[in-house]
Structures are given as structure tokens and as C-alpha cells.
Amino acid sequence: MLCIEALGLRKTFGATVALDGVDLRIEEGRILGLIGPNGAGKSTALNAILGLTPYQGELKVLGRNPWRERDHLMRDVCFIADVAVLPRWMRVSQALDYVAGVHPRFDRAKAERFLGKTSIKRASKVRELSKGMVTQLHLALVMAIDAKLLVLDEPTLGLDLLYRKQFYDSLLNDYFDRRRTIIVTTHQVEEIQHILTDVMFIDRGRVVLSFSMEDFEARYVELMAGPEHVAEARALGPIHERQVFGRSLLLFDSVDRARLAVLGEARTPSIADLFVAVIGGQAAGAQGAAA
């Protein structure tokens, strides 16, 4: 079943085009990474999916129109923005009480169990918690909700490495069950590469590239070419080339790995490398054209 379906999704703020005709088809049970530079339209796309902002075009989330049916949709959708969203005046016990009071799919015992593994006290106010603890609290609330779609917008912004790792480990081990769908945006692509099933690059309001991780591993090869093979490798049409310690790193799309292996060291690139090649290359191209 399709979890999210968008057709020609468009959103403008005055003269600025935040979303410029985005088409999306996200299947149930996927973990999608939405990757893009600042101001690319990631948050706008998520806000439209969450019913927080009006938009033009067609958009269905779990079969509903998010703008018109936000409150219904939120029974099946959870959302963590960056850490500063929980009201600072609220006590931990009040947050539990409130969500238990308004959310029909909230399992309080589960949230309590998760909080029991942390050092968060029930009587503490959110303002007294560290950034990492606030994220743990929000995660505890969200993981206790039996939702179909979880949207994470820079959920680990400003957290140290340990909290970030713990966050994604909890998410994967205690939450994800292959029926749920997760959409996550982050700048720390490397850290979540191993949990993603799908990736979408978004830039200047458009989907630039979209692929599943299986496709990614099959299609893209990064070659560290020996100096004597660089010319030969370039002839195969790399989509990107960069120099590291005086050696050429070439990125290939859909070129036979066996053919590349004889020219140097071939390996699967990181998503970050591909991102730089695709988005950075475009930006450079645009600048070159303008010059």
C-alpha cells in the first residue's frame, strides 16, 4: 500500500518557490532519507505531508488529505522536529498524561518502560532536561504511539555522537517493524546510511534523484584509479571526479564493476559522496554556465 502519494506538489512563499512540482510515491514499510542542502524544500515537503502548511497539487498521506484532515491523520502519524519542540514549561509526567489523554494509540506503559532506561525524572520540567534528554523524552512519547508513519525532521540536531547513535539504534530496534514507514531528514547522512531503505535527493524544490538502497549498491561505484589508469577511467564517463591526496576518485553510474576493478580500487560510495556529486556538480554546473 502507498503511504504517501504526491503529484505536482508545489508551494511558494511570495516569489520564493519552496516546492516546485514534487512527485512522490512512498511505499509502506520503507525508511526514506530525504537529503538536500539547506533551503532545498525538505522541511516544506514534510510540513505539507504533516498538514502544517497549505500547498498546491495532489497529496495523499495514508489515503487522507493532510491539510483538511490533520487531526485525524495525526492518529496514525508521529512527528519529531528538532529538539526544541517540547514546551519548556511542561513536566515529564504532564507530557505523559497529556499524550495519554488525547492519543487513542498511546501505550503509556511502553513510554514509561523506555523512560525507565534513561535518567529522566517524572517531576522534571522540560527546561531542566539536557538537549539529549529532551530528545529521549520525545522519542519515548513517539515510540509508545502505534503509528503508521513517523516523520523525523533533523531529529538529532545539536546532539552529541552518543545520543545520536542511541537515537537511531532505539528507532531501529524498538520501533521499526517493517509495517511502519519512516521519513527522516538529516545532514549527518553517513550516520543513517545503514538504516535507510530509500533515499531521495531534493534541491531547489525538486526531487533530483530517487533510489532504493539496493539500486544504489548495484548502480554506483567509486573508483580510486591508479595514476596510469586515470585517462582510461575518464573515458568510461564518470559522473563526478575529485582529488584526494593526489589520487583521482571517480564516481560511476551503471558501469560494470568488474570493468572498473581492473583500473584501481572499486567500492560502493557513501551517500554523501553521491550527494556531493549530484547536487554539488549541479551547483558547479550552474555557476559554470553563468560565468
Binding site: 504533516l50 490533520r70 495525526m74 522536529a81 519542540v85 517540547l86
Partner: peptide, 14 residues
């Protein structure tokens, strides 16, 4: 205080 994003993430209508 940006709390509106939290309140709106719950099934409570405006």
C-alpha cells in the same frame, strides 16, 4: 516556544 509543532503532532484539532 515552537511548542505548536508538538501540539499539532497530536490528534487534536485547531
Amino acid at each position: 516556544d515552537r511548542g505548536i509543532l508538538f501540539w499539532k503532532s497530536l490528534p487534536v484539532s485547531d
